[in-house]
Design a protein around this nucleic acid. Structure first.
Lengths: 228, 228
DNA sequence: GCACAACCATGACGTGGATCAATGTGGCTG
DNA sequence: CAGCCACATTGATCCACGTCATGGTTGTGC
C-alpha cells in the first residue's frame, strides 16, 4: 500500500485532485521529513531548493528586519503549502512550532512535473488565491484593528484551522508562544497577555492553561473581531 | 491590426506569454472599459462577474470594516491583474484613482479558457506568487514599521511601480490622496502629512506640489524604509 | 468674483499600546 | 530537590501616533 493512500490531509492539500497514477509520479520525487519544535526548516533569502507540504504539526513563517524586529506572516497547518519563492530564494523563514512532518519536493523536479500535471497547477493557483485573500484580511487586522480585536480574530482563526482537521471544538490548543502571537498580530507579548486576560474576565474565553483556551462565546468573539 | 498588438503592457501582463493565436481567443471574450477618477469598479462581496487587467491608470483596492475603518490593500498599475475572488464574490472593492482603462473578462468564460491555455494559468500562478510575496512585505510594514519607515517604503514602492512602465525617474507622480496613502499604510492622513514634511526637511525628498515628489536621496530612503 | 467643497498642512492635546521592571511558574538538569 | 531558564503575567510609566481644531490653497460652478 502506498503511504499517501492513508494521508489524512490529501483532500485539502495540493495533491488532492490528482489520480492515483499522477500521485505516484509526485511521490516519486518526494521525501518525508520531520522537524522537532523550534527547528528552522529554511531561512529567508536562502536559495530555495525544496518546497514542502505540511502533513502534521504547526509551522510558523516570518520575516525579520535588519535590527531584529520580526513579523510572523502566517501559521501553517496540515494541508498547507510551504515555500514561497522570490527570485530563486525563499520569501520568508520557516520554523517548526510543534513536532512537524512534511512532504519535501525538490524544486526543479516539482516545477518540471507541474508542466505535465495541469490539475496540480490549477490547484496551486486556487490555493494561492485563497492565501491572497487571507493576506488581505491580515492587512486589515494589522492596519486597522485594536489589540483586543486582533486577539479575538486570532483565536477565531486558530479555531477555524483546528476545525479544518477535525470536528468543531470549543477547546482549542495554542501551541505557539505569546511572543509568536505578538509578532503575528503586530503587538508585544505583554499586550497579547493583557488582551487575553481581559477577554477572559469578560467571560468570552477561559484560559485553561498557557497552551489551551476554551472559547465560551464565539458570537461575542466574532463581534469583537470585526469591530462591532 | 489587432488592438492588443500595440498594447504597452502586454509584456508584463497576464497575456504576455501567449501566442498571437491564443491571444486572439482571449480578446474574443474581452471588452475594454474605462473609469473616471473616484469611480467604483466593483464592490467587495458583490458577485464576481468579471475579472480585469489594468492597461492604463491607477486603481486602489480596499476592504472596509462595518464601522467604516478602511484598509487599502493595494494600488494597481498598468499590467496588474484585478479581481481576486473569495467564494464567488470579490475579496475587496476596487476604485479608479486616475482615469483608468481596463480589459474586462467575463469570469466564467475566462475560467473555461484557462483550462485550455495552460500557459495562461502558469502566468497567473506566477503573478499570484509575486503578489503573495508583496503581501508579506506589506505585513512587515503594517505590523512592525514606524510611520516614517512606512512613508519611506511607500515612496520607494511608487518609484518602482513608475519605473516598471518607463525609465528610471526621480520625479514621481503621487496620484492618490493623503487619505488613500494613510489607509494603505495603516496611519492617519495627518501622520502621513507630517512624515512627508519631515522627510522633506531632512532633504531626502522635495515636495514639488501635492501630487509630485522629487526623490533626492534614494539610498537614504531605502535605509530608513528597512529600519537602519 | 464669490460661495462652497475637497484636500492638505500644522498645532495642541489625549491615549492605546510600547517599554521597563518585578514577580510568578512549570519543566529540566545536575 | 535545588537551581536555573524560558515563558507568562501584571504593574508603572512613557511616547508615537491618533484626535481634534484651525487655517490655507486650489478648483469649480454660478
Amino acid at each position: 500500500m502506498h503511504p499517501c493512500d492513508a494521508c489524512k490531509v490529501r483532500a485539502i492539500a495540493a495533491c488532492g485532485p490528482l489520480s492515483a497514477d499522477e500521485r505516484k509520479r509526485l511521490t516519486a520525487i518526494m521525501k518525508t521529513v520531520t522537524f522537532a519544535p523550534h527547528r528552522l526548516i529554511f531561512m529567508e533569502t536562502a536559495p530555495a531548493a525544496s518546497l514542502y507540504n505540511v502533513t502534521d504539526g504547526v509551522v510558523k513563517i516570518y520575516k525579520m528586519m535588519p535590527d531584529g524586529r520580526r513579523q510572523v506572516t502566517g501559521f501553517l497547518f496540515p494541508g498547507d503549502f510551504l515555500g514561497l519563492i522570490q527570485n530563486d530564494s525563499y520569501a520568508y523563514s520557516a520554523e517548526a512550532v510543534t513536532e512537524t512532518r512534511l512532504c519535501q519536493f525538490p524544486r526543479v523536479r516539482l516545477e518540471m512535473l507541474l508542466r505535465e500535471l495541469p490539475k496540480l497547477e490549477q490547484r496551486l493557483l486556487g490555493m494561492a488565491s485563497h492565501e491572497l485573500a487571507a493576506a488581505q484580511d491580515q492587512m486589515v487586522l494589522l492596519g486597522r484593528k485594536s489589540a483586543r480585536e486582533r486577539v479575538a480574530s486570532f483565536l477565531l482563526m486558530l479555531a477555524k484551522a483546528t476545525e479544518r482537521q477535525g470536528p468543531q471544538a470549543d477547546l482549542i490548543a495554542v501551541p505557539m508562544t505569546r511572543s509568536d502571537i505578538a509578532d503575528y498580530l503586530g503587538l508585544t507579548m505583554e499586550t497579547v497577555s493583557r488582551s487575553l486576560t481581559q477577554l477572559s474576565s469578560e467571560n468570552l474565553i477561559r484560559l485553561l492553561n498557557e497552551k489551551h483556551v476554551h472559547l465560551i462565546d464565539r458570537a461575542g468573539l466574532h463581534r469583537i473581531s470585526v469591530g462591532l
